[in-house]
Amino acid sequence: MRQSPGRGGGRGPSMADVAREAGVSGQTVSRVANGRSNVDADTRERVLAAMRRVGYRPNSAARALRNGRFRSIGVIISSLSTFGNSRTLDAIAAAVVDHDFSIVLMTVPRSTQGEVTGAFSRLNEQAVDGVIILIEQHQLDRSEIEVPQGLPVVVIDSNARYPSPVIDTDQAEGAASATRHLLELGHATVWHIAGPPQSYAAERRLRSWQAVLEAAGRTVPPVLVGDWSAASGYEHGRRLAADPSVTAVFAANDQMALGLVRALHEAGRDVPGDVSVVGFDDMDEAAHFWPPLTTVRQSFDAVGRHAVAALVSEIADGRRESTLIHVPTELVVRASTAPPPK
Results as ranks from 00 to 15, higher is better:
Val249Asp: 07
Gly195Cys: 03
Met15Pro: 13
Ala188Cys: 09
Arg122Glu: 15
Leu105Glu: 06
Ser276Pro: 07
Glu314Ile: 00
Pro340Ser: 09
Leu80Asp: 06
Asp284Ala: 10
Ala119Val: 08
Ala22Arg: 07
Ser25Tyr: 05
Val308Asp: 02
Pro272Ile: 11
Gly74Arg: 04
Ala95Gln: 11
Val223Tyr: 07
Phe250Glu: 12
Ala41Gln: 14
Ala33Pro: 02
Phe83Arg: 15
Ala263Glu: 06
Glu203Asn: 15
Gln137Asp: 15
Gln298Asn: 01
Gly6Met: 05
Ala215Ile: 08
Gly237Ala: 09
Thr107Ala: 12
Val153Ser: 01
Ile325Asn: 11
Gln126Val: 14
Glu146Ile: 15
Glu136Ile: 00
Thr112Met: 10
Gln298Ala: 01
Pro328Ala: 03
Val225Ile: 14
Val261Pro: 15
Ala94Ser: 15
Arg46Val: 11
Leu260Ala: 06
Leu65Phe: 06
Arg161Glu: 04
Gly174Gln: 09
Ala50Ile: 06
Leu311Met: 02
Ala19Trp: 04
Pro339Asp: 07
Val153Arg: 01
Ser25Cys: 05
Ala33Phe: 07
Glu314Tyr: 00
Arg207Lys: 14
Ala201Tyr: 05
Ser102Met: 13
Pro152His: 02
Arg57Glu: 14
Ala160Pro: 04
Leu140Tyr: 04
Ala231Lys: 13
Glu235Ala: 15
His288Gly: 00
Gly186Val: 09
Glu115Val: 09
Asp40Lys: 10
Ala335Trp: 03
Gly226Ser: 03
Val154Arg: 01
Met283Glu: 13
Ala22Glu: 09
Ala172Trp: 02
Arg269His: 02
Ile145Glu: 03
Ser232Ala: 13
Asp17Phe: 01
Leu258Arg: 15
Ala287Pro: 03
Asp170Asn: 13
Gly68Ile: 11
Pro5Ile: 09
Arg71Trp: 13
Thr295Ile: 04
Ile167Tyr: 00
Val154Met: 00
Val308Tyr: 03
Ala172Leu: 07
Phe250Ile: 09
Gly6Gln: 05
Ala287Cys: 02
Ala94Arg: 14
Asn38Met: 08
Phe250His: 06
Leu105Lys: 13
Gln298Ser: 08
Thr337Cys: 11
Ala61Tyr: 10
Ala175Gln: 10
Pro163Asn: 12
Gly114Ile: 10
Asn67Lys: 15
His138Pro: 02
Phe250Arg: 07
Pro197Asn: 11
Leu258Gln: 13
Val153Asp: 00
Ser299Arg: 01
Pro340Trp: 03
Arg36Pro: 06
Ala242Gly: 05
Ile133Pro: 03
Gln3Leu: 14
Gln198Arg: 12
Gly74Trp: 02
Val47Trp: 06
Val278Ala: 02
Leu264Thr: 12
Arg218Asp: 11
Arg205Cys: 07
Ile92Ala: 09
Ala231Ser: 12
Ala50Gln: 10
Pro341Gly: 11
Gly84Trp: 03
Phe101Ala: 10
Asn253Cys: 01
Asp129Met: 04
Asp301Asn: 05
Val277Ser: 07
Gly304His: 00
Arg44Ser: 07
Asp17Cys: 00
Gln27Arg: 15
Ser30Glu: 09
Met51Gly: 02
Ala307Arg: 00
Thr112Glu: 12
Tyr234Trp: 04
Leu293Gly: 12
Asp274Leu: 04
Ala33Ser: 14
